[in-house]
């Protein structure tokens, strides 16, 4: 029987006193890199405060299995996200503005591949589908934007202006995107959810500059479902 993993908390750019409070409230110990931990069974939930993005790539690796951007969240919502993180193989929760800056799909793929060897095609499929689901959550979900639309530079310019306008809106930019990843012996399941108004894909009837995201998701995974009124997509991959 496999040993039960130890889950612990760690933080970057976050007050130590607050981490200790969250540790007591969640019942999870605080992790230290030089501590006496079993590297093969320890999973670390990383709370991200300020000034961590330059080093982000080095933290999407074992023993880290969850990444929670704290932003303006109070302790209770953080504890709820930590609870989700503890229940998942991998978990990530970021604000829209941060998800727009990071290559989250690529980083999470690296973390999954460190735990489960994947073929090149499987890696490409997971990265593309996760990237497309994140783009949908970000643009059509949290920022409530339409796609580029018409096949013209003018339409692309309108899209650029609209994106900059929406991302500058504090409330929209701080809506969250959650990624829950479950790994079993034969498959990887990834759910991506947002806090937008719900986005239901429409079939493409004529050549347009947008609307191919779900076509690529469908081609990249074994199956997918759009759930919660269009606020969540669940994708399953055979590995």
């Amino acid at each position: 029987m496999a040993p039960t993993p130890t889950v612990a908390l760690h933080c970057l750019g976050f007050p130590t006193e607050r981490l200790q409070q969250l540790s007591r409230a969640s019942g999870l110990p605080v992790w230290h890199s030089e501590g006496d931990w079993n590297d093969s069974t320890t999973r670390v939930v990383l709370l991200l405060g300020h000034a961590w993005e330059d080093q982000a790539a080095s933290y999407f690796a074992l023993p880290y299995s969850a990444w929670i951007e704290v932003a303006a969240l109070a302790d209770q919502p953080i504890l709820e996200l930590v609870e989700r993180a503890v229940a998942a193989s991998f978990y990530a929760s970021f604000t829209t503005i941060t998800a727009n800056r990071l290559n989250l799909a690529g980083q999470i793929l690296v973390a999954i591949a460190a735990q489960r060897p994947l073929s090149e095609v499987c890696r490409d499929n997971i990265e593309l589908a996760l990237h497309e689901a994140l783009c949908n959550a970000l643009l059509h979900g949290n920022l409530q934007m339409d796609g580029i639309g018409d096949l013209s530079v003018d339409a692309l310019e309108r899209f650029s202006r609209n994106l900059m306008h929406r991302i500058a809106d504090h409330d929209l930019a701080n809506r969250r995107i959650d990624i829950i990843c479950e790994i079993d012996t034969v498959s990887v399941t990834i759910d991506v959810s947002d806090q937008g108004g719900g986005y239901i894909p429409k079939p493409i009837t004529e050549p347009k500059a947008s609307g191919r995201g779900f076509e690529l998701i469908a081609a990249s995974c074994l199956s997918y479902q759009v759930l919660d009124g269009g606020r969540r997509v669940s994708m399953r991959f055979l590995v």
Binding site: H131, C135, I148, L156, A209, S210, G211, R212, G213, E215
Partner: peptide
Amino acid sequence: VDSAGIGM
């Protein structure tokens, strides 16, 4: 490349 890249 992603779907938006194809669109562009």
